[in-house]
Design a protein around this nucleic acid. Sequence first.
DNA 1: TTGATTGCAAACCGTTTGCATTAGT
DNA 2: ACTAATGCAAACGGTTTGCAATCAA
Lengths: 157, 157
Amino acid sequence: MIHSEPGAESGLASIAIADLKRRGLRLTPQRLMILELLEQSSGHIAPEDIYQQVHRRYPMINRSTVHRTLDMLEEMGLVRHGHVADGAARYHLARDVHHLHLVCHRCGGAMEVDDLSLASAFADLLQTRFGFRADLTHFPISGLCARCASAPPAPAG
Amino acid sequence: MIHSEPGAESGLASIAIADLKRRGLRLTPQRLMILELLEQSSGHIAPEDIYQQVHRRYPMINRSTVHRTLDMLEEMGLVRHGHVADGAARYHLARDVHHLHLVCHRCGGAMEVDDLSLASAFADLLQTRFGFRADLTHFPISGLCARCASAPPAPAG
DNA sequence: TTGATTGCAAACCGTTTGCATTAGT
DNA sequence: ACTAATGCAAACGGTTTGCAATCAA
């Protein structure tokens, strides 16, 4: 049923598979598909989106399996999640710590910023002044994207 | 039933009451109590907490009324909300734009930071470089508070 | 008086759980 | 064979809705 070699898997999947074995856990087609999807999807992805996309190719997958797999991966330290402006959960790869995730609370669009130097100056200040270790790379930063910022405020009526 | 003079209300309440009248909306005891609570509670507060606290003194209040009132106040521009690490909604006064809201995703504690100069440098960079207008004062910033950051990682199991 | 507002109850959405069955090892 | 993992269905918590009754204006 599982016909791919562990070694043939790319980054996340191979790490996850090794971790699975080490813990005596099992590699299932559901987990494999979810892993692949997480790897492909750059940026944040919602559990429901994962479910929908896996469901296309593997219709018998269940939503609880998606959640249980995400929980497991998070416990293994491979993914993390935060909540965007509408309160919905978004998962992303934990090793993806070299990005800022800017999420527009109007259109919902997300953008990734590679240069962390700007953020680290801010984070350093918060740390030295208040002892607060801001987690700016794992949790989305809310605001208005360029397009929405320049768009008219709201349809009058 | 409502025995206080509009002018006798403090900041938020008096503004809200004036706005209410202007729009032909009504001042109810439920709205008044919610307004008072929002004003007293510095920082972020969850709808459920508002419900619980109002419920003590006014047992017949309904959760839907709390939500509807918060929606109305947000539409009036008097309050705003964001979502903390566990995905739960937190409301706060909109005029409270001179604070950074640092929320610990471990213990859930929140702290307010008055000095915005540090944040604005960061926000300015994001704006000039990417056109993204980060909303650092309205949405909580996740991280670890000083206490949790210095605490042992987790009970060994 | 009268229409905005409420409480109620049910619907809703995303997530979680218990359990019998399935399937990776 | 052993037991982790799944699908299912029901429960859950927070939020939203339709509607008849209420009450601020």
